[in-house]
Design a protein around this nucleic acid. Structure first.
Lengths: 135, 135
DNA sequence: ACTATATTTCGCCATATAACGAAATGGAGG
DNA sequence: CCTCCATTTCGTTATATGGCGAAATATAGT
């Protein structure tokens, strides 16, 4: 039953459901999810950690990049059925459809571009942050 | 997607999953759930309200007693699949098996007995509460 | 070793949630 | 109407959770 609760909790957040749905048949890295969900890196990292803990996703590290995908082999029937439930129940949702398009576009971008944009955004934030006190 | 989130949240609490599982093919009233879960009436009431909001249970009032059961007609495929998921995933759990036995015993008891026991427990609490200040 | 970069961990904050007791509400019976 | 009883609502408290920024960690390149 702990498994049921853990999975249910993992699925109780919209951003996590969005992340899960966008994985579909793809392998996506954290920076791409950050781009899509428009959340802080730390937040996306934590969300994915929760999904991974619940065995709803697999993660693997390649160099600096962390990739997540749906599990290849079903860890358990509970997980398998939960994934089937989410997919069947959320797939027609407008937000999810939009996400799929956006993720396709993000995946078309060069990896370095995505990371560069995020890096620039961080620098802008730092810059904005220092501007008021600088003037 | 709001439906998915609401259902997932409803299923994120062990007591609510236990309540759901114990309904099975039965109709159970709040006082019997109170007996089983050993929670305050207000807490059980709120839990069942959450399950009802998520369309996972139906409620009907008979006199003073409030009964809950699983929905007869599936409200939606999402609900139906979620219920199937929980049932399939939690049915072998030790706690759930124990609950089933206990609920059978509770259902064997006369309705008045259950309510009376709970009434006595409340009075004992009140009595204990006044004792220290009375002495 | 140093620098740069992606990600994770940690700490903080605001909000949500489970539990309880008390009060309010609804229903039954006299 | 009144009394009794089951349940719900409300307010409080302790804990959990989502979001963020900063610091720490892991990886790559020079």
């Amino acid at each position: 039953m702990e498994e049921v609760i853990a999975i249910a909790k993992a699925l109780s957040d919209e951003n996590r459901v969005r992340a899960l749905m966008v994985l579909g048949e793809k392998e996506v890295c954290v920076c791409q999810l950050i781009e899509l969900l428009q959340l802080a890196p730390s937040t996306v990292s934590k969300h994915m950690s929760i999904l991974k803990q619940a065995k709803l996703v697999d993660g693997r590290k390649r160099g600096r990049w962390m990739y997540y995908r749906l599990p290849e082999k079903p860890v358990s029937m509970t997980v398998e059925r939960a994934l089937a439930w989410v997919r069947a129940s959320a797939s027609g949702n407008h937000r999810i459809l939009l996400d799929a398009e956006q993720m396709s576009a993000i995946l078309e971008m060069d990896r370095e571009q995505v990371c560069e944009r995020q890096s620039l955004q961080r620098k802008q934030i730092v810059f904005k942050r220092r501007l008021p006190s600088g003037i």
